[in-house]
């Protein structure tokens, strides 16, 4: 870090809009403010001179924001030596952050974007991803890097854990308008991580296959009706929206599932006998499972099962 000089600086001389060395994102200042009000600033912020009268922040961005908010005019700061290169100044700030906290996904993405100014992709993957707690693979780099380019509300949702970072990164594959629509949908229906990815993947696939935009089918009548149906709670709406998209994405498979369920219903097997198709109808093994209490019960179930083989519709499904 070289020689550091401590000096009382006018807070106005520190350019709080200059985030060259700042990676901090997604924070609240409430607790820090309480602490500073109570005991003051124990570690002075680290700054670097950028012009005759202006300084850039290296470490202590949040502390400076609180001071500004509290109306503090002068503050003791550590000033980095002038001979230090921009790259090393950035690394000073990065290592200071890494020494006392875990970066959130957006901060990791900001870090990667800034490191790209100084290092090749190979160095970032091999040297810096492990420092950020990530696996040293290009696929990880590709997944994390885009997050910093997302709209602020999506980034906030990632930081809050409302949206999965992988799902959020995928949103960048869509136009701004489509991204907004999908984000709204995910926010309203509060899907789990896997379901968020399912919604985004299915939407993407449909749009690519049909050469249309997401808004073409997300604004469709059927979907709007689900979302505005006041009789449905959020999980019910979520399930219906997923089905709506699956039906668009996999029309033949959904039709086969529906036909099978209809035939099964007509077989009148009751609640105790469970008839299931092979997964995705790929194999040729169907499964019948049942429970019974006594011999009469067993016989009744077996009779019902025996009747299946005479059912023409079921035979058509099995034999094609």
């Amino acid at each position: 870090m070289g020689n550091v000089e401590y000096k009382q600086l006018d807070i106005k001389s520190i350019d709080l809009t200059d985030t060259t060395f700042v990676i901090t994102y997604g924070f609240t200042l409430t607790q820090l403010k309480k602490s500073i009000e109570k005991i003051g600033i124990l570690n002075p912020p680290l700054v670097k001179k950028k012009s005759r009268e202006q300084y850039s922040i290296v470490c202590g961005y949040k502390r400076l924001l609180v001071c500004q908010d509290m109306g503090i005019e002068k503050l003791r700061c550590a000033i980095m030596g002038q001979g230090i290169e921009e790259k090393d100044t950035f690394l000073t700030g990065l290592f200071d952050n890494l020494s006392h906290r875990v970066l959130n996904p957006v901060e990791k993405s900001i870090t990667i974007s800034k490191l790209q100014k100084y290092y090749s992709g190979e160095v970032i993957v091999k040297k810096f991803l492990p420092l950020l707690g990530l696996n040293p693979h290009y696929s990880v780099l590709d997944r994390i890097k885009p997050l910093s380019g997302l709209d602020a509300k999506v980034k906030d949702a990632v930081v809050d854990g409302r949206i999965d970072e992988g799902a959020a990164a995928k949103l960048l594959n869509f136009s701004e308008k489509d991204r907004e629509l999908l984000f709204q949908l995910l926010s309203v229906l509060r899907f789990s991580k896997n379901k968020q990815n399912e919604i985004i993947d299915n939407s993407y696939d449909i749009a690519k296959r049909d050469g249309c935009s997401i808004s073409d089918f997300l604004n469709a009548k059927g979907l709007k009706e689900i979302l505005t149906d006041s009789d449905l709670n959020i999980p019910q709406k979520g399930n219906r929206v997923r089905y709506f998209l699956r039906k668009l994405r996999y029309p033949k498979i959904i039709k086969a599932e529906k036909d099978f369920m209809e035939v099964r219903r007509k077989l009148n097997l009751g609640d105790t006998i469970k008839l299931t198709s092979p997964p995705s109808f790929e194999g040729d093994r169907y499964c019948i499972e049942f429970q019974f209490e006594n011999m009469d019960d067993l016989e009744e179930n077996l009779k019902k099962i025996a009747s299946i083989k005479h059912n023409k519709e079921f035979k058509r499904i099995i034999e094609g």
Binding site: D205, K208, R209, R249, P279, S280, F281, E282
Partner: peptide, 12 residues
């Protein structure tokens, strides 16, 4: 390429 957007299922 659009070929991966047809109806695929996991095979055995």
């Amino acid at each position: 390429s659009k070929i991966i957007y047809e109806e695929f299922v996991p095979g055995m």
